[in-house]
Amino acid sequence: MDPENVSATLTVAVPAATVFAVLADPTTHSAIDGTGWVQEAADQAPLTEVGQIFRMDMYHPNHPNGDYQVANQVQVLDPPRAIAWLTGQEKDDGHLEFGGWFWRYDLVPRGPSETAVTLTYDWSAVPQSIREYLQFPPFGPDHLTNSLHHLAELAAPTSRARTPTARYLPVGPPSRSARAQKAVE
């Protein structure tokens, strides 16, 4: 692991365009995540351009409010090869403030029905003032690999009939949606 970023790669038996379509759909991100922090997409429109903002409802037991919202800004959108976004928050005045970390997925086709997917979490631009109260990375080393396995399950043609929460395997505290799913079961 580089001191400023961490990445993982998984080859999936799914075409790159299909994997990219799942990543460009914010409504799938809670099922991909696996920490229990990402709850649901507040902005559900597909990601279609650099600069696009999409908000996600979040939950973390150590956050002052528990529930909160992040604003993500698309930085890279190169279908079906790469997608990346910065994560931040929207201030009361509507101004977006980014913390200096980003998520990036790079997809390399390995034939017509197989794709190598690399997920990178980079915090190299996080200022010292934020590093004083947030630990980086804020999750364990297996998180990225778990997320890639969740992505593969969502992108696989046979998984489309199942709901993402039924396959959700959190590595952290359970999400509200996972808790609600358990209550229903």
Rank of each mutant, 00 (worst) to 15 (best):
A71L: 03
A180C: 04
V14F: 08
L148A: 04
A178M: 10
S113W: 05
D142F: 03
E153L: 14
V14T: 15
D2I: 04
G94M: 12
V14A: 06
K182L: 11
F139G: 01
W37Y: 07
M1Q: 10
G140C: 06
L154N: 02
T87F: 04
A17Y: 09
K182Y: 04
H150S: 08
P64Y: 08
H95F: 13
W37E: 06
G99Y: 12
N146E: 07
G66D: 15
P173F: 11
G66L: 10
A82I: 03
P109D: 05
V126Q: 07
T118S: 02
N5P: 02
T120I: 03
V74M: 08
A24Y: 02
G99F: 14
P164H: 11
S7V: 03
L154H: 03
V171N: 09
N72A: 10
P109W: 01
L96N: 14
M1P: 07
Q135P: 01
D92L: 12
P157R: 05
E4H: 08
V50Q: 06
E49L: 07
S7A: 08
T118A: 03
Q44L: 07
P112M: 10
P137I: 10
R179W: 06
P3T: 13
S129V: 11
G88V: 08
W123E: 13
D25N: 13
V126D: 04
L77P: 00
A178L: 13
Y68A: 03
W85I: 01
M58D: 00
S7N: 11
P79K: 15
R104V: 07
A161P: 01
E97P: 02
L23P: 01
R176F: 09
Y133L: 05
I53Q: 03
L154D: 00
G51C: 09
I53G: 01
Y121W: 13
T120P: 07
E49C: 06
T163M: 10
V108Y: 01
L148R: 00
T18E: 15
T115C: 12
